[in-house]
Design a protein around this nucleic acid. Sequence first.
RNA 1: GGGCGAUUAGCUCAGCUGGUUAGAGCGCGUCGCUGAUAACGACGAGGUCGGUGGUUCAAAUCCACCAUCGCCCA
Length: 1099
Amino acid sequence: MFREVQSTVSLPELEREIIEFWRERGIFRKSLQKPAPEGNFVFYEGPPTANGKPGVHHVISRAYKDLFPRFKTMQGYHVNRKGGWDTHGLPVEIAIEKRLGFTSKAQIEEYGIERFNELCRSYVFENIQDWNEMTERIGYWLNLDDAYITYDNGYIESTWWIMKQLFDRGLLVEDYKTTWHSPSSNTTLASHEVSLGYQEDVEDPSVFPKFAANGQDLLKAGVPPEGDSPNVYFLAWTTTPWTLGANTALAVKPGATYALVQAPKKHGQEAEEKDLYILAHDLVEQVFGETGEVLATFPGENLKGVRYEPVLEGQVPAGTDMAAAYRVILDDFVTLDDGTGVVHLAPAYGDLDLGRKHGLPTIFSVSLTGEVMPQVRAPGTSGDGPYAGMWFKDADEHIANDLLERGLLYRSTTIRHSYPFNWRDGTPLMNVAKKSWYLRTTAVKEQLLANNERINWVPDHIKHGRFGKWLENNVDWALSRERYWGAPMPIWESDDGERICVGSVAQLSELAGRDLSDLELHRPYVDEVTFEKDGKLFRRVPYTVDVWFESGAMPYAQWHYRGEQETPQAHEQLAANFPADYICEAVDQTRGWFYSLHALATLLTATSEDGEPLGPLAHLVGSTPAYKNVISLGHIVDENGEKMSKSKGNVVDPWTVLDAQGADALRWNLYSSSPPGATKRFSQALVDETVRDFFNTLWSTYYFFVLYANLDEPDLAAAPPAQERPLVDRWLAARLTQLVTEVTEQLENYDPTGATRNIRDFVVDELSNWYVRRNRRRFWKSEDDFDKLSAYASLYEALVTVAKLIAPMAPFTSDAIYRNLVLSVDPEAPESVHLAHWPTANESLIDRELLRDMATLVKVVELGRAARAGSGVKTRQPLPELLVRVPTEAQLEGLKRFERELLEELNVKSVRYLDVTADFVEYSIRPNLPLVGKRLGKKIPALRKALEEIDTRMVARNARDGATTTIELEGETFEFEPEAFLLDAKSPEGFAAVEEEGYLAAFDTRLSPELLREGMARDLVRLVQNARKNAGLEVSDRIDLGLVVDGELRQAAGEHLERLKSEVLAHDVNFGELGNGAYSESGEIEGNSLTITLKPVSN
RNA sequence: GGGCGAUUAGCUCAGCUGGUUAGAGCGCGUCGCUGAUAACGACGAGGUCGGUGGUUCAAAUCCACCAUCGCCCA
């Protein structure tokens, strides 16, 4: 009937069979083609780069990605899972540079961009085979045949189209940008390259330049003129003297107190002349020690706008308006922790954003190759300055010395701090403003925030935390890169600065006057395309585009979408696949892909306040974020909470786990061990525990069913409807229904942790260790066909439903169970669980009272087991009577429905139900705090005291009768409903009893000879069963049994002969030995020795 | 330096809007049970709920500060 099932299973082996089956029968393809009455569920694959071997962290994100498309497919959605590969970017270039032994960009150009990019192109798919194998092995269904690849011409052309849209709206502009620049190789470094090169404990100058304040302005500012000295200086502090020529402002802190101080002209020359200084009052002592005398104090605000003299001039670009320069500004970024509280600002070298904020001009002191410019000289002098051409770090000392000499430096010393260096050649970096192309995301900041409100973040704190804060502090997106292996920026420029942004190959062909449809859109080929327009020659700007822009363009570029040039079908395709219903990546993508998708979608779908389309996609899809639900995964660490890294040797290779425990166990462990956003501790041991705890239990339940169903061949189609089955079956149906409802809701809320834990508890605790254990006799013993068929049908339905519920999480095991159970009964059913429909809950099966009563039974059984253990009487020995008390009358009545289960489970002959006020039960009473706490407030301690002295039996009676109890507390009278109190029943004297929260179970342990003999009979059964097992018999084999027993034991065996025979499937029982090669073994029961002989007989 | 998150038993984790005696699984010990289960059941050992202070009749839970770890940014 069903395919035979082994009692233990090798999941990895099973999974390989299922993979083979999926492949042969094209199950994934069929899941895409099956009817989708619910429409599209859109999933976006965040593209990985296939250059390295995939690790556990890749497995985890793919496991989470896979779950929801499977779930939604079963719910009747169509889920197109287009794969994708990220191919461009600096890490690829660096890998190639490393292979070629290059340390600078010049070497790349010398080698040839064409050859270099060719190496990059082949490198990015170096490990594609490993990726594909891993993807298939873990059951990640993704359409890899039709994957998008970011280096494809079509993909690049789509990014061009997007850039043109933004350029035309004035959102793609060129401006200065602060970058970490390596003057040794004249290159901007990417942020992660910068962090590679940070060095601790670097010695740098620490100088205190003196900027002469304008006396008139000071007067106006209310700073009192003091003494004879005409010179009042702002005392600043800097570690980069080479930037002093680029100074255009000084900043002070609003709200802070500043001081006018008289102190020596130079540090360490106390006896000499004094100067007047302005600095933060809090820092006077730190700077001057005992040598400074505070003459006056005033708020920092007073200093706003005061002019001062620069100590060095710099190179002023043509057209720069210097009117705003050399004044004091106010800004909260100024700190009073170190320095002087007066900050020297050089917008060109690190303070660009502050400069913008305060409208300061940007002037320069050092070239991009690290040489000091000739314009750097003392004000009022002319000709090339004394530092012209000097390496900028070498100039520091000369500048400091000259300023000391000119009386414009109070002190020159050194400090140790961390500073970034070029990670390749160890030369210092410069923080410098360079021209760069920006995407003006700040122009749509409000829409970015508004769209974020429409996204469901898991975990939810990301929404207003990490992501929301990032959006609130949004700065324009620096888009251009001075690199080679990337999508080229489609901007062509004439010598006089006219720019054309090209939106398609067709447009470029038109401009160039030749057909470029075969043009390879990478450097260097695209650089070779120039054209003339209006008599001017246009060349492409030398930049590539930030790879994050490409990834963010994926919703459009994966279809090679190019807006207005497209057919209606192409528009439809885009609209049907945008926005995403679900995406999932690790938390580090918050400012990566999560942001790039969000920013581009917001820009492209923007509408004006009155709903007019601004972005080119607004008319298609309206204003929308790029995704509606997003899971941001925590990172994975080893079992000690440490980051996995090769150097620590704690990296777990996914294949060791996949080969030993299998993909389902790995997936299930990932989903259930902690919520998606949590940092995950991971070890193979934990996955192994998942196998033992969940999969083995599920499998043995399934094995049990198949084993007995194949013996009995029940006609499942003829089973009575669930409502008409025995109580315990109806209970199982009710719990199963609840489970379906809950799991569906949990998955719809993107809570795989809750769903997997919920299913695990049902399968292990309720299905296996309660239902099957309690009911197993019904499967192999029942003479009652109705009862037996009900049991088979109930277990069958539970197993099939569980197989469907776990299908999205454990796609292999679920399919193996489903296929055997369902297709053996109904060959017309879908051939894979992944083509089946998600279970629906029939709420009418949820019988609340039944659920409550079973819960009561379980509780009483638990207490009963504890009481039996405490009684010293072994469980096999029947006891005469069980005494039970439960908190309410309703529960008591309900429990009576399960009396048979109670008697069997606790091996007891009868049960006595105690009235809730039964005389020999003592009570203690506690307040039900959640209920009365708020009402009583400060009177709680008084109530506790009152309850110690109250007549507990009266309260118990009131509870039974539903009457209120009146208690006076501190002069005030309170009426308490029965629920206001919790009654704990105390164990009666002389009984083996256990009580908890108003439940009580007690045993009468007086044993009669009859009961003792029954206990012996059960011992006998157990020994015979053991002997059967030792003899290597099958469960269903029938035997002839020979018993050599004496005395009490002989009598016990005689009295319970029929039971013995049926329990051990004995055809015949002889009191004597069976000869002729019968299996034989000896044992002992209660001091009586015995010999068991048995041999199988044919049925 | 800033932002976000975490910190509960030896390990992995639950603990909802403050409220009964802080729980589960694994591991450990003792006992029991077993012809579906590499299981199961009972009992036990194991916790200053990261620390300090505060609010409250009542704090693992709320507030403040601090510490450690992780991620992101500077």
